[in-house]
Each structure stands twice: as structure tokens, then as C-alpha cells.
Write a protein that binds this DNA or RNA. Structure first.
Lengths: 210, 210
DNA sequence: GCATTTTTTGACCGAATGGACAAACGTTAG
DNA sequence: CTAACGTTTGTCCATTCGGTCAAAAAATGC
């Protein structure tokens, strides 16, 4: 039989697909698309390669499904940015949520980073649709705050970039961060240091207090 | 004959090795280590695979040579950070130099990003030696400025991370940046926007002016 | 219990890939 | 011219990898 279409999927099929996606996330995020093999994913999922290929048409299908699923999770923190709330509180909250995601979902972060680094061969349409739309919308919100004089006037889109960059850095460049900071103060301690630093950076910058 | 050792290398050998490294930078930065083939590199260098393997022992040898060479270039902007200069001017200068590197050497940036993302399997020793040493030294300089009350008190190492993250983002996540910003205002214009934004962020943060 | 459908597996295939090698080619010094 | 050395290439090989297939095994419906 062919790979079951979404409509006809039984509970067992859904479970197995989840199992495979979880294994694939582990493998893809560590080795990238080209560096990962179906065998590796199958082994991580505790099944044979042909069995895995019974649930997904091919390697690309797995990757595509993963990326598509994760985009929603990934953009959730930005979606929560509320035009009605207090601007500085909203932005602080956004930064913290993004940093929490880098801490709690580093594999997802690396999966995306890998995909973008390679020129987003498989994710480009999503970037141009969902991502761009959301950023446009939220940039407008931020611009409104700026025009109202409630936060400093600057480029809203570059502000969003800088929040992405600084927070995801702790997931994507984890080994470098660890190499530089050394063994002490890992995990939760590092997270709190980063959170404190980023809050200060985005709120007040580096100029000394008058 | 064996691959010539560094001592016995003729000018022609040096030239060919440079040619290969340039081609390898192009290929590795686009597809990562595992995603690149010796044939691709050989073709980009305008020679046959066996000929390329006459100048480098194997694929790993090329990659390792590349990374080792590039680390110096990559760290140069931080090396220039001068303890004697004016703190805010020095940091502004560092940010601008890093941003210029992201603009002028995006392939180098992506090569490193790829390596770190995969857990730095080939670069780890360099991170723990040269990189850590330099960061430790410069963190001490920055800490001195903070203690003297010349810039705001915060974590110097996380400050360095945030400068790396925000500047390299424009090289590593270029396609995403482009997808979000759309076609208008590319190249030099984008660079100036980013430079202006980052200067403001790092100097003053987001709080509105009194 | 039996027939039908779904799931799993072992064996297999073709293409791609990293690398080896010996033979051919080019260059240069005597 | 020729011997020696450096360079280049065609050919070949073993392995890996993505993917197929038919048949076995397990589950499901009657």
C-alpha cells in the first residue's frame, strides 16, 4: 500500500509518525539534512529503514514535515507580542520567551539554523509567507509604539532580528558559549546570566548611568 | 610522491593550494562539510579530483586547513579592542568592524557557523585555546571599564556574545533577512540600516529619551 | 477460524562518494 | 637529448546511502 494519506491515518500510524519525527529532530539537528542518514533516524526511532519508509515517502518528506510543524511553535513567542500591552514590558517578555525557547528547544533552533544557513532550500516558501507576514504585522505594532514616543525610535525589523540573533545564539552556538565560559555556571545559571544581560542591553544599552 | 610538507612547498604548490582553499570555502560554506563533495570542490577549483588530492591528503585536511586559517581573520576585530581607548568608541568600532566582516566575508562566517552548529567536531581545540584566551583577555579589559564606571556594569562575556550574534546574523541568516525585508534596500543600504540600529541598541537601548 | 488488511523485515539495486594508483605528461637541469 | 622530478589524469574500488520489493508476520474484521 501507499503511504497513508492524512485522512485515513489510524492512531498507530500517528504514533509511529510522531516517534519518527522525534528521532529525526534529534538526528537532523545534530548533523544537518545532508549529514543525516535514514538509517540513523530509523535506528533512533527503534525501527528498520524500510519500516520507516512505510510511514514517510522519503527523507525529504520527513524534513519538510518537521520544519512545517516547528514553524508554528517557533513563531509563537512573537505572536504573543500584544499591541495593547506596555511596550517595554511586552518586549522584555518577548525576549524572555525567546530565550526560554532556546533553552528548552535547542534542537528545534538548530534545525532551523541549519536550514537557513544552507539557503533555506526547503523552507523558503514558509519564510516568505508566514514568517514575513507575521514580522510585517508586528513591526507595524512596534512602529506604532515608537511613533507614540513610548520606546526609542529605531528600525523595528532590525530590532526583531537582534532579538532572534541574541537569544538563538545560546542554542545554535552552544558549544562555543560553553567553550568560552568554561565548565562552571552551566544550565540554569547560564540562562539567568543571559536573561539578565539581555534585559539590560535592550532596555538601557551600555552608556553608564548619569 | 607524498603530499609535500610545508617546508618543501614550491610557489606553484602554494598557488594551487590557495586556489583549492578558495574553492573549498565557496563549497563548504554553502553545503557544510558532509554536504560537500571533493568533486564539487575540484570542479570549482578547475581541476580533477585526483589532482586536488595531490595537494591535500583528504577532504578533512582541506576543511581543517581552512578553519585554522580563518580563525585569525575572524578574531582580528576583537584583537583590535584597545584597553587604552575610549570605551564606548572602542565598542562601537568593534561592532562596526564585525558587521563589516559579516558583509565582506559572509562565506567565512557561514563556514564557522556550520562548524559550530554541528558541535565543532573539528574546531573545538581552537575554541578552547585561542578563542577562549582572547575572550578572557578582552573580557578583563571590558570589566575594567565597567569598574571604572565608564560603561554600564554587565557581563562582559555575554556582551561579546551579543555582538557576535547580532552582527554574524546578517551573514549566517542572510536569506531569512532578505525574505523578511523584501527586495528593496539590499546590499549597502541594508548594511547601513543594520549599523545604525546596532549602534543605537548597544549605546542607548530601547527606553525612550527622557 | 478464516480472509483481508496493515505492518515489518531481509534482501537487493543503482547512484554517489572518498580515496588509491599507475601510467602519462610536462618541466627543468645537466 | 635525456634523466629526474613534479604534476595531471583515467580508471578503478569499497563503502555508503536513498530507496524498492516481495514476502513474512501481525493485526483486524467477520
Amino acid at each position: 500500500m501507499d503511504t497513508p494519506s492524512p485522512k485515513t491515518r489510524t492512531r498507530i500510524q500517528k504514533q509511529k509518525r510522531e516517534l519518527i519525527l522525534e528521532a529525526a529532530l534529534e538526528v537532523f539537528s545534530q548533523h544537518g539534512f545532508r549529514g543525516s542518514t535514514i538509517d540513523q533516524i530509523a535506528e533512533a526511532a527503534g525501527m528498520s529503514k524500510p519500516n520507516l519508509l512505510y510511514y514517510f515517502r522519503n527523507k525529504e518528506d520527513i524534513h519538510h514535515t518537521l520544519i512545517q510543524r516547528l514553524l508554528d511553535t517557533w513563531l509563537a513567542p512573537l505572536r504573543e507580542l500584544d499591541a495593547v500591552g506596555d511596550p517595554l514590558t511586552e518586549l522584555r517578555g518577548y525576549i524572555r520567551r525567546k530565550l526560554e525557547m532556546a533553552r528548552d528547544f535547542p534542537r528545534e533552533s538548530r534545525l532551523f539554523a541549519n536550514e537557513i544557513l544552507q539557503g533555506a532550500p526547503r523552507a523558503m516558501p514558509m519564510l516568505e509567507d508566514e514568517l514575513k507576514t507575521l514580522v510585517d504585522e508586528k513591526a507595524e505594532v512596534i512602529l506604532g509604539w515608537m511613533k507614540a514616543g513610548r520606546i526609542a525610535r529605531t528600525d523595528p525589523r532590525h530590532l526583531i532580528f537582534s532579538i532572534w540573533a541574541t537569544t538563538q545564539h545560546y542554542a545554535d552556538f552552544d558549544v562555543q558559549v560553553r567553550a568560552v565560559l568554561g565548565p562552571g555556571r552551566d544550565g540554569e545559571g547560564r540562562f539567568e546570566d543571559a536573561a539578565r544581560f539581555l534585559e539590560q542591553l535592550f532596555m538601557d544599552g551600555l552608556k553608564p548611568k548619569g
